[in-house]
Amino acid sequence: MADIESARATFNKFDVNGDGFVTADEYSAAMKAMGDAFVTASVADAVIASKDANGDGLMSFDEFWAALNK
Results as ranks from 00 to 15, higher is better:
Ile4Met: 09
Ala44Ser: 12
Arg8Glu: 02
Asn69Cys: 08
Asn69Gly: 05
Ala33His: 14
Leu58Trp: 08
Ala7Gln: 01
Phe61Thr: 05
Thr10Ser: 13
Leu68Ser: 10
Asp62Asn: 13
Asp19Arg: 11
Asp3Val: 04
Ser42Asp: 15
Ala29Phe: 08
Asp36Gln: 13
Phe21His: 11
Leu58Ala: 09
Phe11Glu: 00
Lys32Met: 09
Phe21Pro: 01
Asp52Asn: 08
Phe38His: 15
Asp52His: 03
Ser50Arg: 09
Lys70Glu: 14
Asn54Gly: 10
Lys51Gln: 14
Leu58Ser: 07
Ala49Asn: 13
Asp62Arg: 06
Glu63Val: 00
Asp52Pro: 04
Phe14Ala: 07
Ala2Leu: 08
Ser60Met: 04
Asp15Lys: 04
Asp36Pro: 09
Lys51Asp: 09
Ala9Asn: 12
Met1Gly: 11
Gly55Ser: 01
Ala33Trp: 11
Val47Gln: 06
Val16Ser: 09
Ala2His: 06
Asp45Gly: 12
Lys51Pro: 02
Ala37Ile: 10
Asp19Tyr: 07
Asp3Tyr: 00
Leu68Asn: 13
Ala30Glu: 00
Glu5Thr: 10
Ser50Trp: 03
Ala67Met: 14
Ala9Trp: 06
Val43Met: 11
Phe64Pro: 01
Phe38Gln: 15
Ala9His: 09
Met59Ala: 10
Lys70Arg: 14
Ala30Tyr: 05
Val16Asn: 11
Ala66Lys: 07
Phe38Lys: 15
Ile48Ser: 09
Thr10Glu: 09
Gly35Arg: 08
Gly20Ile: 04
Ala67Pro: 06
Val22Ala: 10
Lys70Thr: 13
Glu63Ala: 01
Ala2Thr: 06
Thr23Ser: 15
Val39Ser: 11
Lys32Glu: 12
Asp15Ile: 03
Ala66Trp: 00
Asp52Thr: 04
Met59Gly: 02
Arg8Thr: 02
Glu63Phe: 01
Asn54Arg: 10
Ala7Ile: 03
Thr40Trp: 02
Ala66Ser: 10
Lys13Thr: 12
Ala67Cys: 13
Gly18Cys: 05
Lys13Trp: 00
Ser28Met: 13
Gly55Ala: 07
Trp65Ile: 09
Gly20Tyr: 03
Ala37Cys: 10
Glu5Val: 10
Val47Asn: 05
Ala37Lys: 14
Ile4Glu: 06
Leu68Met: 15
Asn54Met: 09
Phe21Val: 10
Gly18Asp: 03
Ser6Asp: 15
Asn54Ile: 08
Asp25His: 14
Ile4Tyr: 01
Ala33Leu: 14
Tyr27Ile: 08
Ser6Arg: 14
Asp3Ala: 05
